[in-house]
Design a binder for these strands. Structure first.
Lengths: 240, 240
DNA sequence: CGGGCTTTTGACGAAGCTCAACTATAGTGG
DNA sequence: CCACTATAGTTGAGCTTCGTCAAAAGCCCG
């Protein structure tokens, strides 16, 4: 089913009945493809639907007038990309495909009906947006208070766990399909420095890279360097 | 009424009926005082209620094992401080009072009932948490891509507008009751550099400071320096 | 095999940090 | 009312992390 990754993730947080899974599935339009580099939503836009990432990798980003760009979150399969546009109406940021992607949309009208018919499902999706904010806060701590190397370690830890939660493998090996300029926009540094940060982690024997795949060699070392504590991802079951 | 600041803010976003305002008021326990420096919620805690800030200034912060601290948001009167704990259950960060404060709490059980009885109010509070995330994203852009001076200008613009939206004065003059070490934790720099950044803005004739009050002398200059675009605050009426 | 992208490396400069001292301000008690 | 103290704010000097600019090296794919 196309909502599999989403359901896998939700089930790590609370029970999801078969009926609720079907209801979610029923919200969505047929899948469509987006090529790598495609902008799925543009900042300032007022989309009439919210989009679920079914396959691939995307990122949210805030762009400045000078062309500078800061990626504020990495989205994996099973993530809603602009659920908050259902409430904000106008997008405060853009979403771009980092790889070829498959997405499906749910109209805001249907989501609104959901808030009237399915309070529990509503709380589960509300929780999704609240976890997005928690991820933002961890990144804020990293950008404000950690050095580039430590932020890199933290990112690897986060993606390893989130990949596993969405049923995408990991945590000892997972896919990180970013170019170094993209990685730089995630870490708030330049591409040159992104290169040096990754290099340092490799030379320290913490990770290994083969193409887009990252293999974690020393999880505890990464956790310590990146000050990583997984609580904010809320990857354990609990009633909402 | 103790929810006045909250209602004032919500009304800038959508219509709020008198019945809804009463319903909100009915959710809340009697007010209590918190002295400056008091921790209203601690990271890792599992509060059974969510707390509304009725008077004063608070901040959310993420703390590291080394004692480093990053403030991730400044909260004004009318803001919910830990609404997301209703969904996350466990706090991913702490909330501290920057001034003497008055707060009121709503139990999670009552909030849950609200999601079953009041879909529109639910969407309005969901919107609140979604705007928190949008503010986080702007800060991420600032920390990742702007220099300390520019971030300072952005913060001033944001607080000026939010103060006005909550009916606290502004935007030409408003209260910014932070010590410089606190300001440093907001801007992701050291206290010494926070001092120099504020100084630069004053010497450039952009702002003036008298005690805790900031007077904006050159709004356009601040907007340009801080790359400030108020859209993310969603301070204009629109049906949710 | 050649063009375009991505990654890697080097040299130097700038923003911001650390350490340390000094000044201003606001209480507080005599 | 003033000295005393504690806290907050201000300034300087030298150092570190990261940015800039530039070039070389690897890789993919037609």
């Amino acid at each position: 089913m196309s909502v599999d990754h989403l359901i896998a993730k939700l089930k790590r947080r609370d029970e999801v009945s078969a009926a609720e899974a079907r209801y979610l599935e029923g919200l969505l339009e047929p899948p469509r493809r987006v090529p790598r580099g495609g902008e799925i939503v543009r900042a300032g836009e007022r989309p009439g639907q919210s989009t679920l990432l079914v396959e691939g990798f995307c990122s949210r980003f805030v762009g400045g007038p000078t062309g500078a760009r800061q990626i504020t979150q990495v989205n994996l399969a099973g993530d809603f990309l602009d659920l908050h546009s259902f409430l904000m109406k106008q997008m405060d940021h853009g979403v771009v495909a980092l790889t070829d992607c498959v997405v499906m949309s749910a109209s805001h009208a249907r989501l609104r009906r959901m808030t009237e018919e399915q309070p529990h499902l509503t709380r589960l999706l509300w929780l999704e947006t609240v976890i997005d904010a928690a991820i933002h806060r961890q990144w804020l701590y990293g950008l404000g208070r950690l050095e580039a190397q430590a932020r890199t370690a933290h990112l690897i830890c986060e993606l390893a766990l989130r990949s596993r939660a969405a049923g995408l493998g990991g945590p000892e090996a997972f896919i990180m399909p970013f170019t170094q300029p993209e990685l730089a926009d995630i870490l708030g540094i330049t591409a040159v420095h992104a290169n040096r940060s990754m290099m340092t982690l490799r030379r320290a024997g913490l990770i290994e890279r083969t193409g887009v795949q990252i293999t974690v060699l020393d999880w505890d070392g990464l956790v310590e360097l990146g000050e990583f504590d997984p609580a904010y991802l809320r990857l354990y079951e609990e009633t909402v």
